[in-house]
Amino acid sequence: MTTDRRVLVHADKASLAGAVAARFITKIIDILDEFDEAHVVLSGGSVNTDLMVAIRNSPAQTNVEWQRIHFWWGDERFVEKNSPDRNELQAREALLDHIPVDEAKIHPMASSDDIADLDEAAAAYARELAAFAPDAALYPRFDILFLGVGPDGHIASLFPGMQGITVRDATVVSVRNSPKPPPLRISLTLPVIQSADRIWLVLAGADKASALGLALAGASVDEVPVAGAEGRKRTVFFVDREAAAEVPENLIAPSY
C-alpha cells in the first residue's frame, strides 16, 4: 500500500473546494504530459460537487486538454436517468457539460432506465471497465480517484458491516438496502479503489470528524471503510477544520 498518506486542512468548505480544484488542474496537466490519456474517477456528494464547480470556474481549466481524459464514477444511485440523485447528473451540471470533453470518454454507470436489473447494471459496468483496461487487466489505470466520506465512514457505496466492503473477487458490486437512501446502488469494490495511483478524499463538516479520526487511527476496514482508502502512490485527505477536529496533529501536513 501507499507510503504517502497525509491530511491537508483548509479553513472552510469554500477554500477547500478552491484549493483542491487548483491542485487537480495542476496535477492533471502533469499527468497528460506523461501519458497519452488520463483516467479520473468522480465522486458524488455536495463537497465533491462544489469541487467540480470550482474546477469549471477556474481560469486555469482552459489549459487542460479535456478531450484526453476518461471520466468514471466510484459509485452511482440506481435510479432513473434524470433523477437529481444521480451522481452522473450532478457531475454533468457542475462540470462535464461546461468543458470540451469527449462524450465517448464519459463512462457513467447505468440508470434504472438503461438496464432494469441491478445486478446486470453492475455487470455491465464491470465490462465497461475491462473494455478500457490494459492487456490482461480488468480495469484502467486510474490516475486520480476522488472519494467522499460519509459520517459512518463509508466510501463510494461501500458501507460498514455490509457485504460490499468485503468483496475481493469482483470489480463492481450491486448494493441493496443501503443505509443511506436511495437503497439501490452500484459501486466499485475496494480492490479497484485501491488500485488508483492517487486517492483524493474530500470532506467537510464536523459530522465527518469521527470517521476520519478512526480511519487514521487504524480502525477496521469492515467497520470504517474509509480506513481502506489507500492509493498506490499517494493518498490525500483534503478537509476543512471541522472535519479535522479528531486528526492527530502529527498527521496534518504543513501548508502547501
Rank of each mutant, 00 (worst) to 15 (best):
Arg5Asn: 12
Ala196Gln: 00
Gly228Ile: 01
Pro225Cys: 00
Ala206Ser: 14
Tyr125Leu: 09
Ala156Thr: 06
Ala131Leu: 09
Ala94His: 08
Val239Trp: 08
Glu246Met: 12
Gly148Thr: 07
Ala211Phe: 10
Val41Ser: 02
Pro108Gln: 05
Phe146Met: 01
Arg86Ala: 08
Leu190Glu: 00
Val226Asp: 03
Phe78His: 11
Leu188Arg: 02
Ala219Gln: 01
Val221Gly: 04
Arg77Tyr: 07
Gly213Asp: 04
Glu76Tyr: 09
Pro140Leu: 08
Leu147Asn: 06
Arg56Lys: 07
Glu120Ile: 06
Ile193Asn: 04
Ala110His: 09
Ala91Val: 01
Asn82Ala: 14
Pro108Ile: 08
Lys13Tyr: 11
Thr235Val: 05
Pro225Leu: 02
Asp197Thr: 15
Leu129Ser: 12
Pro134Glu: 05
Val172Gly: 10
His107Arg: 07
Asn63Lys: 15
Asn82Gln: 15
Ala209His: 13
Ala11Glu: 11
Gly161Asp: 07
Asp102Trp: 10
Ser220Arg: 03
Glu230Ser: 14
Trp200Lys: 12
Ser178Glu: 03
Val9Cys: 07
Ala215Val: 01
Met1Ala: 11
Asp197Met: 14
Ser220Asp: 12
Thr62Val: 15
Leu138Gly: 15
Arg241Met: 11
Ile193Thr: 06
Thr166Leu: 09
Thr62Leu: 14
Ser157Gln: 00
Asn250Tyr: 15
Glu65Asp: 14
Tyr139Val: 11
His10Asp: 04
Thr166Pro: 00
Lys81Met: 15
Leu138Ser: 15
Tyr256Leu: 14
Asp85Cys: 12
Leu214Lys: 10
Ala38Asp: 06
Ile155Asp: 02
